[in-house]
Every structure is written in structure tokens, then in C-alpha cells.
């Protein structure tokens, strides 16, 4: 750990473009959790998008430009934390974009080493053991792919969820199978994407849980949008909202 036990670490919240635009509540939930874990939270003003859309579309040059932007915005913080495994996965991939630019490579590697998905940071780095939250009902948790396979996020969200009062976790079948969001994939191949969502939703519904949680807003908007289209009563929240005791308002896609 970088920070000493006495001084609180200075943490940059990388809020992600989706949370910034669509669900600020997740950002505030992340701030509350980080502060509960003894961090000094700041929101770098120059942050925008991590560059994943161009990176995954083969547009290396635009991805590099956006990576430079993010690297600059996150300079000087002890840690960079995002409520998204997929955006942190992107930040961790920056070194691949600058293999032939030694100065930027060093900076990219430094940023990659300081970057963490929210639940991973809370549990693995901060050793957060107690959270105070209550969410009555049964939930099921979808393992978003980048967090799970690139970052190894699996036990952390479950360990934190276990502390939420009155919540029961019902594991779904194939929890590690992609929901079909996939960034631009969901609009490039909408039929395939919807079929994958339906497979996911079958598994969600089979648990009987009334709420589905995940750590990535992209997957959640996709799942929630499809749930609503199919008139399924399951609600969707970002896991940070439940952990921060901020899942009282409308769920994703619900009217206020």
C-alpha cells in the first residue's frame, strides 16, 4: 500500500462517462464508500472517457489521444478508482498503446499500477471490513467480463454484499457468461446482443431474485433495458448503490 496508515490516501474517482451522463447516483455512492474506507476523494475535472470505444473498434490513434488525456487527468493521485471493471481494464491496458513511446509507457505503467475497480480497491487495498447498508430482498450478481477476467474481481463484491443487512444473494447459473453488452457490439449486432441478454435474463429470473446487481453500468443499462422490454419485474442497480445504502430511489431505467 502506498499510503501510510496515518495519512488518508488521495484517491481520484474516475467516474466513467456512462455514470457521469446517466447515473450520477453511482458516482456519489462510490464517493461515500471510498470516504468510509478512509480515503480523501477528489474528482479530477479533466477526466472524460477512458478511450475504450476507439480501442475496441481498432481505432488506435484516437484511443491513444484519449489515453493521454486520462493519464494527464489522473496524474499525482495515490490511486485512481472507478465503479467499473471495464474502464479500469482499459486503464490497465494503456501500456499496450504506448509500447514504442518510452516516456508515456512509463507513465501508463504507473497509472495502471495505481488503478482499481471500486470493490477490488475497497477490499484488497483498503481492507474495508464493515459497511453499513440495508437492502431488503434477494439479489443476484452478474460478473461483468473485464472485471472478472482481466482484473480478478469475483470474491470482493460478494464479500461486501454479505455485509448488507436484509439482503440475500442468490447466485445465478452462468454468472460469468457475458450479458451481450460489449460496448459498441450492442448496437453493431443488436440481434445477437439481445439474444445474449435473454440468456442472461433467463438465468437471472430462474434465481427468483428481485434485483440484479453488477459492477458495470454498461452491462446494467443493457440488462435493465431488455428486462423492461420483456416486462420482467426484476430491478437493476449498480452494486455501489446497494453497498453505499443509496439504492432507495428509482432503479436503472425506472421512472422517478
Amino acid at each position: 500500500m502506498r499510503a501510510t496508515n496515518t495519512a488518508p490516501p488521495r484517491v481520484a474517482l474516475f467516474v466513467t462517462c456512462l455514470v457521469d451522463l446517466f447515473r450520477p447516483n453511482v458516482g456519489f455512492a462510490a464517493v461515500r464508500l471510498l470516504e468510509a474506507a478512509g480515503c480523501r476523494v477528489e474528482v479530477p475535472e479533466a477526466q472524460t472517457c477512458c478511450g475504450q470505444p476507439p480501442y475496441n473498434s481498432g481505432d488506435r490513434k484516437d484511443a491513444q489521444d484519449m489515453a493521454r488525456q486520462t493519464i494527464a487527468a489522473c496524474r499525482g493521485y495515490d490511486y485512481v478508482v472507478a465503479p467499473s471493471g471495464s474502464c479500469i481494464g482499459m486503464l490497465r491496458d494503456y501500456p499496450r498503446l504506448f509500447a514504442h513511446e518510452p516516456d508515456l509507457l512509463a507513465e501508463a505503467q504507473d497509472l495502471a499500477a495505481r488503478s482499481f475497480e471500486l470493490t477490488q480497491f475497497l477490499v484488497d487495498v483498503r481492507g474495508l471490513e464493515r459497511i453499513e447498508a440495508r437492502y431488503p430482498g434477494s439479489v443476484t450478481y452478474h460478473d461483468a467480463c473485464s472485471g472478472l477476467r482481466q482484473l480478478g474481481v469475483r470474491g470482493q463484491p460478494r464479500a461486501l454484499l454479505a455485509q448488507v443487512e436484509e439482503t440475500r444473494l442468490e447466485e445465478m447459473r452462468d454468472t460469468e457468461v457475458c450479458c451481450g453488452f460489449g460496448g459498441t457490439f450492442c448496437v453493431k449486432y443488436p440481434e445477437l446482443s439481445a439474444r445474449m441478454a435473454d440468456d442472461k435474463i433467463d438465468n437471472i429470473c430462474a434465481t427468483g431474485a428481485d434485483t440484479v446487481l453488477a459492477g458495470d453500468l454498461g452491462c446494467l443499462m443493457h440488462i435493465a433495458g431488455r428486462l423492461r422490454r420483456l416486462d420482467k419485474p426484476v430491478r437493476a442497480y449498480h452494486i455501489a448503490e446497494v453497498l453505499a445504502d443509496m439504492a432507495y430511489g428509482p432503479a436503472i431505467g425506472e421512472e422517478g
Binding site: V15, V19, D20, L21, F22, R23, P24, N25, G27, F28, V43, E45, C186, V187, K188, P190, E191, S193, A194, A197, M221, H222, A224, G225, R226, R228, R229, I252, G253
Partner: peptide, 20 residues
């Protein structure tokens, strides 16, 4: 391409950055 098979969850109102 999105809304043919999914509802589109709308913003909660103003960006996180602005509210923060």
C-alpha cells in the same frame, strides 16, 4: 439499433461532474 430490442434508460438529470 439499441431501442429495437431494449428500452433506453434515461439520465437521472444533470451530469455527475456538474452536481459534484
Amino acid at each position: 439499433a439499441w431501442s429495437a430490442s431494449r428500452d433506453f434508460p434515461l439520465p437521472q438529470g444533470d451530469t455527475f461532474q456538474a452536481r459534484w
